[in-house]
Design a protein around this nucleic acid. Structure first.
Length: 452
RNA sequence: GGCGGGUUGGCGGAGAGGUUACGCAGCGGAUUGCAAAUCCGUGAAGACCGGUUCGAUUCCGGUACCCGCCUCCA
């Protein structure tokens, strides 16, 4: 039994699939105009982990996961104008980057990754239905959603239309009936991408794509809708309004899940503070994707997460240890305690504690299988931890120096070499049995001492 | 101003109304030429003020501080 915190009802609820035995999930994906930053990656890892849990519990073929690409947006248009490149070239390239970067974090590809521009027809149809039902109106080439026509508007994010207007930082366009009315369709000038519609050549507003694509691919109602908490308002609120008003059933997503934001070294990530990183930046700096993933999993998804270099170093040390312990082992059964922790509102930190327990008990098979449920210790993600250089000659030389020193009682040469090895991130183990060298956290072959 | 979230030991970070979280670091011991690794043992917490309770870090109320959204940037 999987329990999840539903931000819509503000309650902890048991996941009871609307179609018994089959789970359908929709997560808001990126607007593709630039590299994904590490904040964008958090929902990817969070919902990938949920996807993996769902597949484990319900079976691979019984979970449908949809994550969209927003490839029509004014940010993309601006990027195209500024670089003088075709829009499609920018979105195709960015999608390629996104795939490469998220793959590196061990995120499985969703079942469907629809592009908004492939669903303009369904969007137009949905907008027409909203007009026909009296929830939207056309004005000056725009189509707007009439928020006063949907009494539940604001319920998802816990606001009321009147409160929001009191806050009054809303753009009041003359053609709006109510300041909170939002755009479903807007006109495009000749230099902007546009599609023919009953309201003239134009393009969709931001929110309608998720309503249209989720209905096409998952149906009017589905089980889980996810995304960052920053999307709760207005994006998700507007999705709810559109879908509930356009769908004959009047229903939409059952459980809403929102992940909290990410900070860097205790501060909001921003370009002005110089703490803005893309996933690719971190990968290029030498942080393995698996290490980044483990850092993410250490914090419960509903709490703010802080990215720090210190955490990454600890995560790297942990993964090295686990990889060493499980080297050559075949995955056994996934530990029940790990599934139980994840089933409790995706308690990844609790699941990791269980992994530490398995490691402490020396259960390599259980550790491997359980870690892989979390997307860790996957064989294809372990290249970074593999020893690419043979340390045996170093061990031999250190051993020889040590043997000499045992007789002469002068250990200075041994200590010097040991220090050099440790500076290169090598763990030095000397015992009666001999000398053993292992790569440890921060291992850097370039720093190894020169052999005599 | 409106709405939402957070505050746990040196650091990170969970669960549970009463019994050891866990990881890293620390301390004592074994071991070691010295270390490392390993093993054994061990100290350390719940922002603040009230309330409910036999008992709260865990429930309720308030205060303070921090963060996010409401506005292009997640």
């Amino acid at each position: 039994m999987i329990r999840l915190w539903n931000t819509r009802t503000r309650q902890d609820e048991a996941l009871q699939p609307l179609q018994p035995g089959k789970v359908r999930m929709y997560v808001c994906g990126p607007t593709v105009y630039d590299r994904a930053h590490i904040g964008n990656a958090r929902p990817v890892v969070v919902f990938d982990t949920l996807f993996r849990l769902l597949r484990h519990v319900y079976g691979l073929e019984n979970v449908t996961y949809v994550r969209n690409f927003t490839d029509v947006d004014d940010k993309i248009n601006a990027r195209a104008a500024e670089t003088r490149r075709p829009i499609r070239a920018i979105t195709d390239e960015t999608i390629g980057w996104y795939h490469a970067d998220m793959d590196a974090l061990g995120a499985l590809r969703p079942t469907h990754e629809p592009r908004a521009t492939d669903y303009i027809g369904p969007m137009i149809a949905m907008i027409e239905a909203l007009i026909a039902r009296g929830h939207a109106y056309a004005a000056e080439g725009h189509v707007l959603f009439d928020v006063r026509s949907f009494p539940a508007y604001g319920a998802l994010s816990g606001r009321s239309v009147d409160d929001m207007i009191a806050g009054a930082r809303v753009e009041v366009a003359p053609y709006k009936r109510d300041p909170m009315d939002f755009v479903l369709w807007k006109p495009s000038s000749d230099d902007l991408p546009g599609w023919d519609s009953p309201w003239g050549r134009g393009r969709p507003g931001w929110h309608i794509e998720c309503s249209a694509m989720s209905r096409e691919l998952l149906g009017e109602t589905f089980d889980i809708h996810g995304g960052g908490i920053d999307l709760q308002f207005p994006h998700h609120e507007n999705e709810v309004a559109q879908s509930c008003c356009a769908n004959p059933s009047g229903k939409f997503a059952n459980i809403w899940m929102h992940n909290e934001m990410l900070q860097v070294e205790g501060k909001k990530m921003s370009k002005s503070l110089g703490n803005f990183f893309t996933v690719r930046d971190l990968l290029d700096q030498g942080y393995p994707g698996e290490v980044i993933r483990l850092v993410y999993l250490q914090t419960h998804y509903a709490k703010p997460m802080d990215w720090t270099a210190e955490k990454a170093a600890q995560a790297e040390a942990t993964l090295r240890k686990w990889r060493m312990l499980t080297a050559g082992a075949a995955p056994g059964a996934v530990a029940e305690a790990v599934v139980a922790a994840l089933s409790q509102d995706l308690n990844t930190a609790g699941a990791l504690a269980e992994l530490h327990r398995l490691a402490g008990a020396g259960d390599a098979a259980g550790l491997l299988a359980s870690a892989q449920l979390l997307g860790l210790l996957e064989p294809e993600m372990g290249a970074w931890a593999e020893v690419t250089i043979d340390l045996a000659p170093y061990a031999a030389q250190l051993g020889a120096l040590r043997d000499k020193a045992m007789e002469s009682k002068d250990f200075s040469a041994v200590d010097a070499m040991k220090s050099a090895l440790m500076a290169a991130g090598v763990e030095v183990r000397m015992s009666k049995a001999g000398v053993e060298l292992l790569p440890a956290a921060g291992f850097d072959p370039a720093k190894l001492p020169v052999l005599a």
